[in-house]
């Protein structure tokens, strides 16, 4: 695999942001733009052919080359969990690449769509959407999962307990668990935790060094465009308008930093793709975290309520004390 194009130092999100995109997919420069959500990725489904001449798509190969060896070997035997006994062991199935696994953090989904009497086959790279308000990260009980300013949502394997709460909270159930490794083994291996969750980290370490994620860099057809969020979003809108295409990921789960552009409606793709564990859907997704926003605001205001009540209560008590002086 060739090394990815270098993005000019410190300029990834600012000065040379446009150059970064230009290196990836020829988006006009947007120097100086402020990107509150960091980087974004546009995945143009119409461009992907699934790398038919290769054993596995090159984006998948690149990702596996980088990450497969980073998953430690699990202990043998993996402790049975109390009381359910369920463990998830992918260590003997590392070669699986037709779904997401701890060892396979991107895969290419296939969709055969019939349109206007013609059959079209689409290939769709699927990995973490890197949501703008990721419940998987904000609600991780150990803060092992974090949203970084560069847009990446990253699980720290050294802090993860393997409870898979992030997978339960993810609308696409992206994170995948390997039992028998991680922190939980050193604490209460049969009673709490169950390994480590793994998923795409957007090549967080690379983009911090202004390098492209390996999947983006490895793609010969420039299916993925990676760069400053505003520019990527603008490019996605432009392409969608020019081609009559459809976008997914812009509003799903309250917004993500991954936009899919498809020539056919996502309902159609969703209807024909294989869905299930490790094989995410294209359903519309409402942001469930937002359901709690009003109550979260009440929490933030509650100190003021307590102080106001104390002031009022004290004033009443003082006034009662004055009124009742000598009379009690």
């Amino acid at each position: 695999m060739s090394e990815s194009p270098k993005i000019s130092r410190r300029g990834f999100l600012k000065v040379a942001g446009g150059a970064a995109i230009a290196a990836g997919a020829g988006i006009p420069g947007t120097a100086g733009a402020k990107e509150p959500g960091g980087a974004a990725t546009l995945i143009d489904i119409g461009r992907c052919d699934g790398c038919p001449n290769y054993e596995m798509p090159l984006c998948v190969t690149a990702c596996r080359e980088r990450y497969l060896s980073r998953v430690p070997e699990p202990v043998d035997p993996i402790p049975k969990l109390f009381p359910r006994g369920k463990v998830e062991d992918w260590s003997k199935r590392k070669n699986v690449f037709d779904r997401l696994t701890p060892y396979n953090r991107i895969y290419v989904q296939k969709a055969a769509v019939s349109e206007d009497g013609k059959n079209r086959e689409f290939h769709i790279p699927r990995r973490c959407m890197h949501c703008d308000h990721p419940a998987c990260a904000t609600l991780c009980p150990f803060s092992a999962n974090k949203k970084y300013e560069n847009g990446a949502v990253v699980i720290d394997p050294d802090l993860c307990f393997g409870g898979a709460k992030c997978r339960d909270l993810c609308p696409w159930a992206i994170p995948q668990r390997q039992s028998g490794i991680g922190l939980y083994l050193h604490i209460l291996p049969t009673l709490a935790g169950n390994g480590v969750l793994f998923k795409c980290d957007l090549c967080h370490e690379r983009i911090e060094k202004n390098e492209l994620p390996v999947c983006v860099a490895a793609c010969p057809r420039e299916v993925m465009t990676f760069g400053p969020r505003e520019a990527v979003f603008a490019e996605a809108e432009k392409r969608a308008a020019e081609t009559g295409g459809f976008l997914y990921g812009k509003t799903e789960n309250g917004g993500t930093s991954t936009l899919y552009l498809s020539p056919v409606p996502f309902e159609k793709l969703n209807g024909v793709i294989e869905k299930g564990p490790g094989k995410p859907h294209f359903d519309p997704v409402k942001p469930r975290m937002a359901e709690t926003n009003a109550l979260a605001k009440a929490v933030l205001l509650s100190p003021l309520v307590g102080l106001a009540a104390a002031w009022f209560g004290t004033a009443v008590a003082a006034s009662g004390s004055e009124d009742g002086k000598g009379g009690k």
Partner: peptide
């Protein structure tokens, strides 16, 4: 988890307000 979080928030609002009331009211 979202339902639990909502209930946690609601209880937190009561808890924080009551604790601050207790501390400040009796302190004053």
């Amino acid at each position: 988890y979202i339902t639990s979080l909502g209930i946690h928030y609601a209880a937190s609002a009561v808890f924080i307000a009551a604790c601050l009331f207790h501390l400040v009211h009796h302190g004053l």
